[in-house]
Nucleic acid binder design. Structure first.
Lengths: 368, 368
DNA sequence: CTGAAAGCGCTTACAG
DNA sequence: CTGAAAGCGCTTACAG
């Protein structure tokens, strides 16, 4: 049972006194075999400690039962949860998971995709780092390797994807603040990439009600769009000075935004932070400034990170279903691998407002 | 360049007008070839969009350049960081990473190891869920598949491993509290598995200075051991009622410990929580009870989770080098794969005390 | 239902 | 330096 050198089907066949074809049939679970043969072969296999070689099987069947994932950074709670979701459904179907990090860099992503393709994964789940240039992803399609996108879309790449409904989420977060009586609401957003003609132009177009091509926007831009829409609904003009663009994806970059916004001559009474990392940065600044929430500042964050529920007071936030996003993506990918042939699907999962204690109800000044 | 059907070495050879052996030699980077041949073959390969099939290569070389990892739960920040560390070094060496979750269940771990072995990983990194029964891991050794353990050791399994120095860490955390003048220090620990004859016996043996077999203890028991040692050093007897055993690995289980300890007739003035999850549970309880830290209760946690640095006040904690643990494990595994043959190594990485604002300095009652 | 033979896409001795 | 041939460990038609 405990055997040093790995036994092959040929070894098992020899011991069982049958052909390799027959041994393969019972061990591989394909074709027909008599019960008698089955017993013999299984006994021999057990005796030799036979373990199928997935490489050989994959080489001949053209299927590896392995999924490839290109995540931004496993260490980030967003990706960690998404990965767990993917893992849950992959595992249930006996699929393995080959995981890489792109660190949101296009070149690392290209490298990852190449590695995974060489390892012959049956399909790929990617959070694309560039929503424009994605030849490596188009290549995948032309090689008929199924692909599912998470979190971001790629312009012109028509494939299955799952994301949070970011526009609606941004709108709901800010509407919540308006309903509590806030009128000057700051937003701290990543907004790394340029969308068109810069931030000012984007705000102007969005405020004018221009039905923009919002599908392929980066999530932070979509959430900003929701922020603008909530303003339109509330009949309040967007003040561009209240929009803080971190410009890089880090808590440190977000952190500097808080004092900047609060230093305005007419400072905001509330803040909306557009993702987990931005929220963390803002929180650091709030702690450093010794501000009391919600007395000095109201706050709605994004992503339900563990600390938000046990801060004092609890932090209200838009919770996106990270686990479910991963699960949905994996399920769609598995369907494609099994031959599903319908047109590309876009699954937008709603984020949920979790209302805790970080929003102050303001009595509106009747003069305003 | 963009090609529908995947080209093989045979295709490239045909186009280049050479033998498959020659094509293989230049594409695979082994053996000698003239520059002339090289050019021809590379041109043909580019033209056909040739991509090596790692399956075929792996089948023949017996090496897949893939590492397998069995983690407890990718979603847990501890594992997420460890995985990132592993990923960093694997990636630098061009290795792929096959990742599974065990959820700390032995049967899922056995299943994961089997899957990874079938996929012919070159080596495995495992956080064993059972430090006693590990036949599946012994099997790996007898098949000469390199194995590195993280966080936990397995009794009788002599392989490379890396972990935090948990005993020293526990001791330092509690000594820190003693030095601040605390005498009654509660501890909230997982302590899921039984170590020998139960908690009481363990405490008695530890307090007597018995040089225990501490190597194969679960981390939470080791940290408890450090707690006891700090008491011996301080000359304070351990009160078993101050030891809260969560008994399951969840924040909820830890959460019930805080009111229990504080409800004692002679309650603790300080708490030591022995890992990230226990810390989170304790924090939830502290928030629920509306306690002010450190006025009502002092606190030293374990693992430097992001929220600990921006709570108000900051939470003092023992920070274990999670990333470095993953990196060290991956490096050792790679060495073994490359043939390193030295005796099994144990790498104990020190945890670092990060002192923030959660410990109150107490003036000692001169009567005591 | 079973077996002999071919083949998946590579690499590896072995001649030349 | 190059090529013909064998083989890694399986599965898949094809006969019987």
């Amino acid at each position: 049972m405990v055997v040093r050198n790995k036994a092959t089907i040929a070894d098992v066949a020899r011991v069982a006194g049958v052909s390799t074809a027959t041994a393969g049939r019972v061990l591989g679970g394909y074709g027909y075999t008599s019960d008698e043969m089955k017993d013999q072969v299984q006994k021999a296999a057990r005796q030799l400690g036979y373990r199928p070689n997935a490489l050989a099987r994959g080489l001949i069947t053209g299927k590896t039962r392995t999924l490839g994932v290109v995540a931004g950074d496993i260490q980030n709670p967003f990706y960690a949860s998404v990965l767990r979701g993917i893992s849950n459904v992959a595992e249930a179907d006996g699929f393995g998971l080959l995981i890489t990090n792109s660190d949101e860099s296009r070149s690392k992503e290209v490298q990852s995709v190449e590695l995974l393709a060489q390892k012959q994964v049956d399909g790929l789940i990617v959070t694309p780092s560039d929503t424009r240039k994605a030849r490596h992803l188009h290549n995948l399609l032309s090689m008929e390797i199924p692909l599912v996108l998470i979190d971001r879309a790629v312009a012109g790449l028509s494939v299955d994807r799952v994301a949070a409904d970011n526009i609606a989420a941004g709108e709901q977060a800010v509407r919540h603040l308006f309903e509590a009586g806030h009128r000057r609401i700051g937003i701290i957003a990543e907004l790394v990439e340029d969308e068109g003609d810069g931030l000012a132009a984007f705000l102007a177009r969005a405020a004018s009600g221009d039905p923009m091509e919002a599908e392929a926007l980066y999530p932070s831009w979509q959430r900003l769009l929701g922020y603008v829409r909530a303003h339109r609904i509330a009949g309040v003009a967007v003040d561009p000075r209240l929009v803080f663009r971190a410009g890089s994806y880090s808590a440190e970059a977000a952190q500097v935004g808080v004092p900047l916004l609060l230093g305005l001559s007419d400072p905001p009474t509330a803040l909306f932070t557009t993702d987990g990392t931005m929220s963390e940065g803002a929180m650091r600044a709030i702690t450093a400034l010794n501000l009391s929430i919600p007395r000095d500042l109201s706050l709605v964050c994004f992503d339900d990170l563990d600390w938000m529920s046990f801060m004092q007071p609890g932090i209200s936030t838009m919770s996106q279903p990270r686990l479910a996003m991963g699960e949905a993506a994996a399920r769609m990918l598995l369907e494609r691998i099994q031959g599903e042939n319908c047109p590309p699907r876009t699954v937008l999962l709603p984020a949920e407002l979790i209302s805790r204690g970080s929003v102050l109800r303001r009595v509106l000044d009747p003069a305003v």
